[in-house]
């Protein structure tokens, strides 16, 4: 859809705009910021993109907790660059949300006030340095499975943001896996650390794909709009199928006695996910929810005077010009 449709002397009525929008989606073409779009589409996108941006920013914290203590200078540099990338992803995604009329500061306020969510995975603590590797391998791996289809999202700015984000995420995943490989060839304590971290992160990583399809109220509309391309359960299965051979290569096991290969379907079967835990964590009762939000709030509030100064300075410069 091109913006020229909106420049006609007599604006077309809503039904015609809706028909054009529907045709654009049906043809697999992209909606761009100045195109007409239904209000529900806009709201759903803002919610989803903001949630994604918040996840990037909150996601800096669990790994950031190891920045000062990273056990080699090379690992410190890798982790610092990764956390920096996450800040970059957040900026990029907030910008995509701003093309829909949202405002970054306002979205951040909503996050801090608990009115918008972020990925519940980041409410788990990072207990050892192996967690840094497992987050890269499993959490970023799950994120990639979720996000690669979004590179074809119907909304142009989001799709383009996701292409760049996915490239960097896949790089982070490789780095995380490489850390784990190194640790697995290290001391017995290091190997035990890796298995322990895998045991703690495996189930939460499966929850990253969201509730099962029969309990995912918004999914159908999002798929019809081309915002979402595959169901939660489809993506979850793809992630499991991808991860099991990687675990074998690494020499770790997943904490699921029911995990087994089904030759008939060509997929791995896995045990039941504890959705009660998922609901607890997403509704604010995870191990680190309060701490994550408190730190984000402190960054905003403790430094509010810095942004006021920058604004005041800019105004003075403009007045003097």
């Amino acid at each position: 859809m091109s913006s020229s449709t909106l420049d006609r002397p007599t604006p077309p009525d809503e039904a015609a705009l809706q028909a054009l929008f529907d045709a654009t989606i049906a043809a697999g073409h992209r909606i761009e910021p100045r195109d007409w779009m239904p209000e529900g589409y806009r709201k759903t996108l803002v919610r989803q993109i903001a949630q994604h941006a918040h996840s990037e920013i909150i996601g800096m914290q669990p790994e950031g907790d190891w920045l000062l203590a990273a056990p080699s200078l090379r690992r410190k540099a890798i982790l610092l660059a990764k956390v920096q990338d996450e800040a970059g992803h957040g900026m990029y995604l907030y910008s995509a949300a701003e093309t829909l009329g949202a405002d970054r500061a306002d979205l951040t306020d909503k996050l801090i006030e608990g009115k918008q969510k972020y990925s519940s995975i980041f409410n788990y603590p990072t207990l050892t340095y192996a967690d840094v590797g497992v987050i890269g391998w499993l959490v970023d791996g799950a994120a990639i499975c979720n996000q690669v289809p979004l590179c074809r999202s119907s909304y142009g700015p989001y799709a383009r943001a996701m292409i760049r984000v996915c490239k960097e995420e896949s790089f982070h995943q490789r780095q995380g896996y490489e850390l784990l490989l190194t640790m697995m060839s290290g001391t017995p304590e290091q190997r035990a650390m890796v298995q322990d971290a895998v045991d703690r992160w495996w189930w939460p990583s499966l929850m990253m794909f969201g509730p099962p399809d029969d309990d995912s109220p918004n999914s159908a509309q999002s798929m019809a709009w081309g915002i979402k391309r595959h169901s939660n359960d489809e993506l979850r299965q793809r992630y499991v199928d991808m991860s099991v051979p990687q675990a074998e290569a690494l020499g770790v096991t997943f904490p699921d006695p029911e995990l087994s290969y089904d030759a008939e379907t060509g997929h791995y079967r896995f045990g039941a996910i504890d959705w009660e835990e998922f609901k607890q964590v997403i509704s604010g009762h995870g191990p680190a929810n309060a701490e994550r939000i408190a730190r984000r709030r402190a960054a905003r509030d403790d430094n509010a005077w810095v942004l006021e100064a920058a604004t005041a300075y800019a105004a003075k410069q403009e007045a003097a010009a």
Binding site: Q84, A87, G88, M91, Y94, D302, L307
Partner: peptide, 11 residues
């Protein structure tokens, strides 16, 4: 890191 005034400053 994670305590900066703005995301641009984190970077």
């Amino acid at each position: 890191i994670t305590a900066s005034p703005e995301l641009e400053e984190e970077v």
